Deep mutational scan, measured.
Amino acid sequence: KVKIAGPGLGSGVRARVLQSFTVDSSKAGLAPLEVRVLGPRGLVEPVNVVDNGDGTHTVTYTPSQEGPYMVSVKYADEEIPRSPFKVKVL
């Protein structure tokens, strides 16, 4: 029921550039959304989540370095389908 889309989860994500993606939970009811961005060697990146007021949230983060990242998206305390997402930061 929760959908996710945006360039911040795709290929070609650049280090030190603001990345974003949208989480659409409009068909999933009200529940807490939790997003974690883990970088190389367990680095935890700050994440900004904005409630758009229409059942969607815009998530932004800036990867601080190149390497493999994991983006975990939980809704109602459960990983959404395909989460955690593997993101290769260049």
Rank of each mutant, 00 (worst) to 15 (best):
K1C: 05
D51S: 13
V44S: 14
V47Q: 04
S20R: 14
R14S: 12
E66P: 15
P7F: 08
P81K: 06
P7W: 05
F21M: 04
A76C: 07
V89P: 04
E45Q: 07
T62A: 04
F85R: 06
Y61C: 02
V13T: 04
V87M: 10
K27I: 08
V50P: 00
P81S: 07
N48H: 08
L18G: 08
V17W: 05
T58R: 12
I80P: 02
V2S: 03
N48W: 06
V23P: 00
S83M: 03
P63C: 03
V23K: 01
T56L: 12
K74W: 11
G39H: 02
N48C: 11
N48P: 02
M70E: 15
A28L: 04
L18I: 09
R16L: 11
K27E: 11
L30I: 14
R41E: 14
V47Y: 06
L30W: 12
G12D: 12
R16N: 13
L9H: 03
G55A: 10
R41S: 12
Y69G: 00
E79R: 03
K27T: 10
S26W: 02
I80N: 01
V44G: 11
V2M: 02
R14T: 14
M70C: 12
K88D: 15
G29I: 08
G53I: 08
E78N: 08
V87I: 13
Q65A: 08
N52R: 10
N52Q: 13
S25Q: 05
Y75W: 12
S26G: 09
L18E: 15
T56H: 12
K27V: 09
P68N: 14
L18Q: 14
G42N: 14
G29C: 09
P32I: 07
A28H: 03
S11G: 09
L43H: 12
S25D: 04
D77N: 12
E34G: 09
V89T: 06
I4F: 07
A5G: 15
D24R: 02
D54N: 12
F85E: 02
E78M: 11
R16C: 09
M70I: 11
F85C: 06
V89N: 05
Q19N: 08
V59N: 00
P46R: 09
P81L: 05
G42P: 02
E66Q: 09
V71C: 04
G29T: 08
S20E: 14
V17K: 10
S26E: 06
F85S: 03
P81I: 05
R82I: 06
P32K: 14
G53S: 12
V73M: 02
T62I: 08
L38K: 13
E66D: 14
R82Y: 15
G10P: 05
V17A: 08
G42A: 10
L43S: 12
R16Q: 12
G53E: 12
P7K: 07
M70G: 06
M70P: 00
R16K: 10
D51Q: 11
L90W: 11
G29K: 13
P81G: 05
G55R: 12
K1D: 00
K74L: 07
L90D: 15
N52C: 10
V89A: 15
R41H: 13
G12H: 09
G8F: 04
N48S: 13
S25W: 08
G55F: 11
A28I: 04
G55N: 09
E78T: 12
V87L: 14
V13K: 01
V17F: 07
A76S: 10
D24I: 05
V89Q: 01
L43M: 14
